[in-house]
Amino acid sequence: MKKHNFSAGPSILAPEVFEKASQALLDFEGTGLSVAEISHRSPAFLRVIQRAQALVLEIAGLDNSYEVLFLQGGASMQFLMVPYNLLETKAAYIDTGTWANKAQKEAALFGKAEVVASSKAEGYKFIPKGVTVSGDFDYLHITTNNTIYGTEFHTLPQTTVPLVADMSSDIFSRPLDYSQFGLIYAGSQKNLGASGSTVVIVKKDLLGKVSRKIPSMLDYQLHIKSESLYNTPSTFAIYVNLLVLEWLQAQGGLHAMEQHNRAKANLLYGEIDRNPLLVGYANKEDRSLMNVVFNLTDESTKERLDTLCKEANISGIQGHRSVGGYRASIYNALPLESVQVLVEVLKEFERTA
Rank of each mutant, 00 (worst) to 15 (best):
A165E: 12
L156C: 09
K347E: 11
E348P: 13
E299D: 15
S119P: 03
H40T: 02
P175I: 07
I317V: 14
T98P: 10
N231E: 13
A186C: 13
R351I: 05
F79I: 02
V343Y: 08
H4N: 13
W99G: 09
P128F: 00
F137E: 07
L25G: 13
L207N: 06
L26C: 10
I171D: 07
A237Q: 11
A186V: 14
S197K: 00
F126G: 11
A312P: 03
N5P: 15
G316D: 04
A312G: 09
F110W: 06
L140H: 00
I59E: 13
T151H: 01
L296H: 04
V48P: 04
Q72D: 14
L254I: 05
I142M: 08
I142L: 08
G270F: 04
A75F: 10
E227Y: 01
I314T: 03
G270R: 00
N231L: 12
H40V: 08
E311S: 14
K225R: 08
V200C: 08
V343F: 06
F70D: 04
D166W: 02
L218E: 08
W99S: 15
R304W: 07
I272S: 06
V56T: 02
T147N: 09
C309S: 08
V115R: 11
K20M: 11
L243C: 11
L156T: 07
G97R: 01
L243W: 01
E88D: 11
A44Q: 15
N283L: 12
Q72F: 07
Y124V: 09
V48I: 06
